[in-house]
Amino acid sequence: MKSPQNMKPWLLSGPAFVLFLVLLLIPLVMTFMLSFNSFSFYGGIEDVYTFGNYIEVLGDSYFYEIFLRTFLIALITTVFCVLLGVPEAYILLRMRPLARSIMLLVVLGPLLISVVVRTLGWAILLGNNGVINELLQSLGLITSPVKMLYTSGGIVAALVHVMIPFMIIAVWAALQRRDPSAEQAAESLGASPVKVFTRIVLPQAMPGILSGSLIVFSLSASAFATPAILGGRRVKVVSTTVYDEFLNTLNWPLGAAIAVLLLASVLVIMLSWNRLIEKRYTGVFE
């Protein structure tokens, strides 16, 4: 009587578990071990265990710069997503149902369109002969093209475009649970629209902003397509560096070490961020 009851959940999740064990856990462990192997140009991967790759990465200002650039890009992207996404989510929630469902298609739809295609749009916009430079020149605002492609700024612009739906979804989820009459109550007590937003809406959106920021930050820090297309070899980030080590230099162990460091730093940031959120918001918004 008792044991079949206990077996049932494991039987049900068994196939998924086996799939994840073989195709996720084992490969991750293999990658971790790979990061301790060494590599020589002629001998390929050597089956020895050393900290050499980590010493190389952590001791080289070239890699420092790449990691710093990656996290700065992710941070600035997150800030822009908050500044633009939070008001937009609030505006969406206050729209009439028909307008709202159309706007949701516009705002969330791009999430489903290939990142490569969306980034292509930005490449066309940002190029030296691109749409923005041509427009600014024809308006006489600038005389020679401003360099935007192959800059961190260009990458941030495109990443904001790619990531902002996640922020809107998170803030939306937090705000739709709210009681809209609280805003009317604040208004009846004499609060201006700005005050209603900052004193009533924003605090209720906070859990969504925090969780949305975490998603946007970690996805931006590990983004590949956008920095690869808009930054190329000139503005390297961590994932494009790993890609180059694996598919161009063929130094898999070094690439694996960089990847492990990326995974570790993303996990550390996520866990500490989660702890912060839990500390501040446990119970308050349940």
């Binding site: 195709l23 996720l24 084992i26 490969p27 991750l28 293999m30 990658t31 790979l34 970690s218 820090a221 590990s222 590949f224 961590v238 994932s239 790993v242 890609y243 694996f246 898999w252 690439g255 694996a256 990847a259 492990v260 990326l262 995974l263 993303v266 996990l267 996520m270």
Partner: peptide, 16 residues
């Protein structure tokens, strides 16, 4: 798989 950076997943799959 939502939290592990995709590039890490990519090389892990490549290795396997």
């Amino acid at each position: 798989p939502l939290t592990v950076p995709t590039v890490v997943l990519g090389i892990a799959f490549l290795r396997l």
